[in-house]
């Protein structure tokens, strides 16, 4: 049974007079590492919003681990684009936050959070405030906060453009760091990104969203790309050019439709 299944899903935001997704169907198998790419505003993050039950007004069916998003609230761990750390909590307490809804003791929560911080290499920052950390470190704390949810039984990791706010050098180092983390996790991962290279590097499969509204998802196998050097192989360069070209065509279509 697939972990995620979209079946004929149609959705548009109430405030918009157009649909984002029309009769969209796809599946995600357990332990897949999927990167989702597509033109700006095509509905990539909306997929996550539907899966985490933040949007409910759709037609068709969505199934997460065999349940609807409404009843599968404990299945997905979501990492947003911004770190969204709470400035009034220190780093350790920011990481314990998702554990506070679970029936576990405070000492246990702290142990789990400490382990997560150790996993992301920030053990020495437990008592610091978010403002004392760099952008990359804050994203790692955000990842640790998501990680503790996986350790508590959530099976699906949803990463929504986690590095988009970082400068290019930090981004490269965070991508390499994330590859190691994701490979260690043994979880099902879906990550939205705007960066084609990032999508090829981190994912085993790429979901390419195209069209307005999105009706189909092109699935591209990139499991052969294991490290950054593989991105420079001729077939990788060819694939990258193809994806960029698809991106540009879709963006041009969007601009034409909006009269830009």
């Amino acid at each position: 049974m697939p972990l995620v299944e979209f079946n004929d899903v149609t959705f548009g935001y109430k405030e918009d007079d157009y649909l984002l997704l029309r009769n969209l169907s796809f599946t995600v198998e357990k332990n897949d590492i999927i990167t989702v790419i597509g033109a700006s505003g095509c509905g990539k993050s909306t997929l996550f919003r539907l899966m985490t039950c933040l949007e409910k007004d759709y037609t068709g069916s969505i199934s997460i681990n065999g349940k609807s998003p409404e009843t599968a609230s404990g299945t997905a761990a979501f990492m947003p684009q911004k770190d969204l750390l709470m400035p009034w909590r220190n780093i350790l307490k920011n990481v314990t936050l998702p554990l506070e809804v679970l029936p576990i003791s405070k000492s246990e929560r702290i142990e789990i959070a400490k382990e997560a911080l150790s996993k992301v290499g920030l053990s020495d920052c437990e008592k610091k405030r978010p403002s004392e950390l760099s952008g990359g470190m804050r994203q790692r704390v955000s990842f640790a906060r998501t990680l503790v949810q996986l350790w508590q039984g959530r099976e699906l990791l949803l990463l929504d453009e986690p590095f988009s706010a970082l400068d290019s050098l930090t981004r490269i180092s965070m991508q390499d760091w994330l590859i190691g983390q994701v490979n260690d996790l043994n979880a099902t991962v879906m990550m939205v990104t705007h960066d084609v290279e990032e999508a090829m590097l981190i994912g085993n499969k790429i979901f390419l969203l195209s069209g307005r509204p999105v009706k189909d998802i092109s699935i591209i196998d990139v499991s052969g790309i294991k490290c950054r050097d593989d991105l420079y192989l001729p077939q990788s360069v060819k694939l990258k050019n193809r994806l960029v070209s698809a991106f540009l065509t879709d963006n041009a279509d969007k601009e034409e439709r909006s009269g830009v």
């Binding site: 985490t52 039950c53 933040l54 404990g74 761990a77 969204l84 709470m86 936050l97 998702p98 809804v101």
Partner: peptide, 23 residues
């Protein structure tokens, strides 16, 4: 977006009030 993040963690409205809105 902060509220939504807490919702994805499974927090109730009361928990969101105590942990986010009040502070």
């Amino acid at each position: 977006e902060n509220e939504e993040l807490l919702k994805t963690m499974g927090m109730s409205s009361a928990a969101i009030f105590i942990k986010l809105k009040f502070p």
